Simulated scan of single mutants.
Amino acid sequence: MAARGNSTRPTLVWSNAPKQTKSFAVTFYDQDAPTGSGFWHWQVYNLPKDTTRLAETLPSQAIEGNTDLGKPGYFGPCPPIGRKHKYTFTVHALDVDTLPVPAGATAPLTGFFIHQHSLAQATLSVYAGPRAAGE
Rank of each mutant, 00 (worst) to 15 (best):
G82S: 01
G129M: 04
V26A: 01
T123Y: 02
L99Q: 03
A120R: 09
Q31K: 11
H92W: 04
G134P: 05
S60Y: 07
A132H: 07
E135G: 02
F75W: 14
T98C: 08
F39T: 00
T21E: 10
P59T: 02
P34S: 12
T57P: 06
W42Y: 15
T8G: 13
V91I: 02
H41Y: 12
G73W: 05
P100W: 14
Q20F: 11
V91F: 05
F28K: 02
R9T: 04
L124Q: 15
H92G: 03
M1I: 06
G70M: 07
S15P: 06
P77G: 03
V96S: 15
H85E: 13
T8F: 13
Y87I: 07
Y45S: 04
L94V: 01
D68P: 01
V101E: 05
G70R: 11
H117Y: 13
A2C: 08
Y45R: 10
G104Q: 08
V44M: 00
F112V: 07
E135L: 04
N6E: 08
Q61E: 12
P108L: 03
A25V: 08
G38P: 13
G65E: 08
T90E: 14
S23K: 01
G134N: 03
T123G: 08
S125D: 02
R4Y: 15
G129P: 03
G82Y: 02
R53V: 13
A105E: 09
K49N: 14
E135Y: 06
F112Q: 15
Y87A: 09
L12F: 05
G5K: 01
A133N: 11
G134M: 05
H41C: 02
I114A: 12
A122M: 11
L58D: 02
K84E: 10
T8A: 15
C78Q: 03
A128P: 04
T52H: 13
G104Y: 10
V91H: 04
A107F: 01
L109I: 08
V91T: 00
T52K: 12
T90A: 14
E135F: 02
V26Y: 00
V101I: 09
L69K: 09
F28H: 00
W40Y: 06
I114H: 09
L47M: 06
G76H: 05
I81G: 05
K22G: 05
A93G: 00
